[in-house]
Each structure stands twice: as structure tokens, then as C-alpha cells.
Design a protein around this nucleic acid. Structure first.
Lengths: 95, 95
DNA sequence: TAGATGCATTGAAAAATATCTATTTATCCA
DNA sequence: TGGATAAATAGATATTTTTCAATGCATCTA
């Protein structure tokens, strides 16, 4: 069971949602991602870290580079837990 | 189509998620809600306003009191849009 | 009508978050 | 090895959000 508040905080940022969406389609290195946005590399790394905490992103290191990709299934699973929190039969789930 | 970032921001607070959950089960007046939490009445009104912006809550005025209740279907619908953003076929939805 | 009650709004302070620059760490290559 | 490149971390600042006290507005009732 994820912490639904923390999960929503993780998605409560435009840059992070755009990163997630971009990495659905293709794997990208950190510098690729930085190039696609108008913020600094440390800021991107910060956002990647937040998304990775929830397993929303996977990463693999190749030489100096780190490639990230979105874990689509995990995103859907977490959203499902969010729905369940508010759509559960009475008395179910983290009351 | 909702703004998924703003929707996540609306849910990115523990008090607001607890309010939403509490009002799934029963309709409550603002003062009832205030009594159930450890924050001030203006703070509760502020949270109610944020949730209401997305139609996640309905309200009706009865005399001096305002009663709120959670729109379960709307919550589910918004969560569904969130999932769709990250689980859509390529090229679908708000690019 | 006057006072009281319930809730929303305003304005300011406190807390949390996003962002940057500078630095560190790891890896590559000449 | 020495220099260069990629990414993470640290520390500081800026912005946003949460919160509260004070106030305003509507409604009830005595």
C-alpha cells in the first residue's frame, strides 16, 4: 500500500508529469531530459528522484549515463490505489 | 478534461484526503468538519474550497449551515483521467 | 432591530517545495 | 594518470502552500 498523499505530491508538479509522460514513449538519459526542459540538471535530477521513490521510473546506468523510463504499470497501479481509497466499500482499506 | 497537475495538487494534502474520505460516508456541516480536525475553521474552509473547485465535493446551504458531501463518482472520474494520461495509446489525450 | 452564530474571505506569518549555483562522485578516454 | 563528461548531492534562495487571526456577510432568534 502506497501513501496516497505522498503519491499525489509526487504527481503534483507539471515538470514531473511531463517527464513521466515523455518517458512512457522512450528511454532517455538525464541530459536528454534536461535538454527537453527549461530547468537545470540538478532540478531534473531532483524530480527524477521523487518519481523514482515511488517506482514510477526505472533507471539503468550505461557508462557515465543513466537512462530512465516510465513504469507504466506501476503508475496505473498507484492510481488504482488512489481510486480504491475513495471508492472502496465501507470499512475497507486504510481507514 | 481536468488539469491533472491541479487535480493532484488538490489531493496532495493529508487533511484534504481525510476530508474527502470522511465525507464519503456522511454529509457534514463545516463546523462538524472543523470539530473532527485539529485546524482552524478558515483552514477547513480553504481546503473545502480547493476540493469543491474540482467538483469533488457538493454543498448545500441549510440556514446558517453549509453541508458538504463527497462526489464519489467525480473523484473516480478524475482519477480515471489521471490514469488515462499515463496509460493512453500513443498519441491520445492532451499531448 | 440587536446580538449571536456559521461560514467565507482577507492579509500576514510559517512551513514546505522548487530552483539555482557550486561541488562531489563515477566513468570514460587520450 | 589527467582531463573531460554525466549525474547526484549540498547548500542557499525563491516561490508556493498551509495556516491562523481578524473581519465580513448572511441568517437566525429573542
Amino acid at each position: 500500500m502506497i501513501d496516497c498523499v505522498e503519491f499525489c505530491k509526487a504527481l503534483a508538479d507539471d515538470t514531473r508529469q511531463r517527464i513521466l509522460q515523455m518517458l512512457l514513449e522512450k528511454e532517455m538519459s538525464v541530459s536528454d531530459i534536461v535538454a527537453a526542459f527549461d530547468v537545470s540538471q540538478p532540478t531534473i535530477s531532483h524530480h527524477l528522484g521523487i518519481l523514482k521513490q515511488f517506482g514510477l521510473l526505472s533507471s539503468r546506468k550505461v557508462g557515465k549515463q543513466v537512462f530512465y523510463t516510465t513504469n507504466r504499470d506501476r503508475v496505473v497501479e498507484c492510481c488504482g490505489q488512489l481510486i480504491a481509497k475513495f471508492d472502496a466499500e465501507e470499512g475497507v482499506c486504510e481507514g
